[in-house]
């Protein structure tokens, strides 16, 4: 990959000299150029960073509280694009059925989605990576057992099991996070297993084994750095997956509980008013869509940039 880039800088036919060596872009700068030249990464990264900042600074962005500031006299104010005399500039996105400021609930909802997505992804990532790397590295019986666990997990319907467990042990933010984290590790395990298998048979792993390195050391310093790009791609996918699942659970009434401003819950609460006030569904749904789209674009971008076979 480095060769054609160098040739474009060197005059053709000239003997390589010390000066050319300096002109050759370092692997780091090549990587930076690929990252900054990738539309998906730039758009996805910007949107995700914006939502992240909104989530952090949510209390500073609006003068209201997402839960406590209820005012039934102010209920169902229209948003700014409705051009209605009922519009109140204090509530740019209007208010919900309880008269709570919709913009405030929306920005606080970003906190719930990001927290759940990230935490559930971490939990499932640890479980799935451990299983997958173990299966790929040791092979044989370990691989058989892990494969069996993955198959068993895949045959249980996620939404149904999550709903059942949450309904039995009660629902809270952390229960939803743990239930999702313990359920969605399958893709981590599948991908880590196959990538570890590929890396495992390479010469540098054999070299490390010949040097007498411990298994743990080989896995941490030889295997992991070489599968970490696949790990990042799966992590973004699973974060998006967890956020969508939380929204679906909350929508069905068995995820995050009211009055928390979860986007799924907001859509669920607005469902009954779909006929007259469809924007109540449109706004949180669009936010959810933007967040998932941003995470997926970033993930796809990371795959394009790090996988050598996909570079054009």
């Amino acid at each position: 990959m480095a060769r054609p880039e160098t040739q474009s800088i060197t005059p053709s036919g000239a003997a390589p000299s010390a000066a050319d060596k300096i002109l050759e872009p370092s692997p780091g700068s090549q990587m930076r150029r690929r990252i900054f030249g990738h539309y998906g990464i730039m758009i996805g990264g910007t949107v995700l960073a914006a939502i992240f900042l909104i989530a952090i600074f949510a209390p500073l962005l609006t003068p209201f509280d997402p839960i406590l500031d209820q005012d039934l006299a102010q209920k169902l104010k229209p948003p700014f694009w409705h051009d209605s005399p009922k519009y109140d500039p204090a509530h740019p996105l209007g208010t919900d059925l309880q008269g709570r400021d919709y913009l405030t609930r929306l920005v606080h909802g970003a906190r719930i989605s990001l927290l759940i997505g990230f935490s559930a992804m971490l939990i499932s990532g640890v479980i799935g990576t451990a299983l997958g790397v173990a299966a790929g590295y040791f092979g044989g019986r370990v691989d058989m057992v892990v494969n069996f666990i993955i198959t068993t997990r895949l045959s249980m319907p996620v939404v149904l099991v999550a709903l059942a467990v949450v309904s039995l042990i009660g629902s809270s933010l952390w229960i939803v996070i743990w239930v999702l984290g313990l359920l969605i590790w399958d893709r981590f395990a599948v991908v880590m297993r196959s990538t570890t298998m590929q890396v495992r048979n390479l010469d540098y792993v054999a070299a490390a084994q010949a040097c007498g390195c411990s298994t743990l050391r080989i896995i941490m310093t030889e295997i992991m750095p070489n599968v970490v790009n696949h790990l990042i791609v799966v992590a973004t996918l699973e974060m998006a997956h967890a956020i969508l699942l939380e929204a679906a659970l909350s929508f069905l009434g068995l995820g995050v509980q009211p009055p928390a401003p979860s986007w799924g819950l907001m859509i669920s609460e607005a469902k009954g008013m779909m006929f007259f006030d469809p924007w109540l569904i449109g706004v949180p749904g669009a936010a959810l869509f933007a967040l998932i789209l941003a995470i997926n674009l970033l993930g796809d971008g990371v795959r394009d940039v790090t996988a050598p076979e996909n570079r054009n």
């Binding site: 869509f289 998932i292 796809d300």
Partner: peptide, 22 residues
């Protein structure tokens, strides 16, 4: 494909319901 993967199914269902149904 990219858009489809990011659409929450229950939201998409409600949107379709609103436009095509209501």
């Amino acid at each position: 494909a990219v858009v489809g993967q990011a659409l929450p199914s229950f939201w998409f269902a409600l949107i379709m319901m609103f436009f095509l149904g209501i």
